[in-house]
């Protein structure tokens, strides 16, 4: 009797945990999807959805770090960083496998430095993150135009395509990359000083400073990391798309990365959240998109729905915070 009530309590508590809610919704959509359109929950389709979700998941990783770091942190330039990553990757590698590493390095350095500019603007010049990163988006699109000069960009090399889409045990390479990334972030948050400092800073800026965290430096770095992660994702995305079809290819990542982070249970106030939650959030969003496509809801309506979902979640989150207080 006592045990069953305890289990019940745990289940109830679980349903207050956003990550558990997100996971539950994933199953629910798969179930309904499969009823509406048999085959929706098949292995092949789920893998496809996961592949699309992996890119969102990777970009959200950087967004996740920034939001965790507190101080109203937000990076609205990640989408453009994705595009920039794909373009620099394409231009430097020139479809040659031998130049792949060089291209990756070029992407990393360029996007990291531009990300740092975001960070310096936010921490040293106290520009609100929203304004700073939006402005950076404009700067990046200008850089992109400068690089491409309006002409097409060379696509992905064979090797890059193979790494991303080539299957091992029926699972494409990009998913292995995503899993490695998730394991890395999990380790980072749970077993490194970096993670402890980041969470402390996100929870209480002043106390973190007094505990020995170099708050400004750390926060600046986060923007560098976010830019770089988005840049690398863009590079990998090039392997998936095989060519740069237009220079707004990354734009959709900006908003969706924020939604994935929040849906996954990360507090917009900072200092609370797990990457597993973010990953589940990314999967859930792609799953919903696929489901809406399956039941023939057109693109504009889908966007309305996504916006509404974000609002509902933020609303619910605010309520939960109040209840805790």
């Amino acid at each position: 009797m006592k045990n069953s009530s305890l289990t019940l309590r745990k289940v109830r508590l679980g349903f207050r945990n956003p990550t558990v809610i997100a996971l539950f919704l994933c199953f629910l959509i798969l179930l309904i999807g499969n009823l509406v359109s048999p085959g929706f929950a098949s292995f092949g389709l789920i893998v496809n959805i996961l592949v699309v979700a992996s890119f969102v998941g990777l970009v959200s990783g950087g967004q996740f770090l920034i939001i965790l770091g507190g101080g109203n942190g937000l990076d609205l330039s990640v989408g453009r960083f994705v595009t920039l990553g794909a373009i620099i990757g394409g231009v430097v590698s020139q479809k040659q496998d031998s130049k792949l590493i060089l291209a990756l390095l070029a992407v990393m350095v360029a996007t990291f430095l531009l990300g740092l500019v975001n960070g310096v603007g936010v921490t040293h010049f106290r520009i609100p993150p929203l304004v700073m990163t939006m402005s950076m988006s404009i700067v990046i699109i200008a850089i992109i135009r400068f690089i491409t000069g309006g002409i097409g960009v060379p696509g992905a090399s064979k090797l890059l395509q193979k790494i991303i889409t080539g299957k091992v045990l029926g699972i494409p390479g990009i998913l292995y990359i995503w899993i490695l990334f998730a394991v890395f972030l999990h380790y980072l948050m749970n077993n490194t000083t970096f993670g402890v400092k980041l969470m402390a800073m996100g929870t209480n800026d002043y106390a973190a400073r007094l505990a020995g965290v170099k708050v400004k430096r750390l926060r600046t770095l986060l923007y560098g990391f976010s830019g770089m992660i988005a840049g690398i994702t863009g590079f990998l995305y090039l392997g998936y798309l095989s060519s740069v079809y237009n220079i707004s290819l990354g734009d959709k990542f900006t908003l969706i990365s924020v939604i994935a982070v929040v849906v996954g249970g990360t507090s917009l106030g900072g200092g609370k959240g797990t990457y597993i939650g973010v990953a589940i959030g990314a999967f859930l969003l792609q799953l919903m998109e696929s489901f809406l496509v399956t039941i023939r809801i057109d693109q504009s309506m889908r966007q309305v729905l996504f916006g509404t979902i974000l609002l509902v979640i933020i609303f619910m989150y605010g309520r939960e915070q109040k209840m805790q207080n």
Binding site: A200, T203, A207, A208
Partner: peptide
Amino acid sequence: KAGVFSERPIFE
């Protein structure tokens, strides 16, 4: 204000 990270684990 200047001490605990209230939502973080005791450990951290």
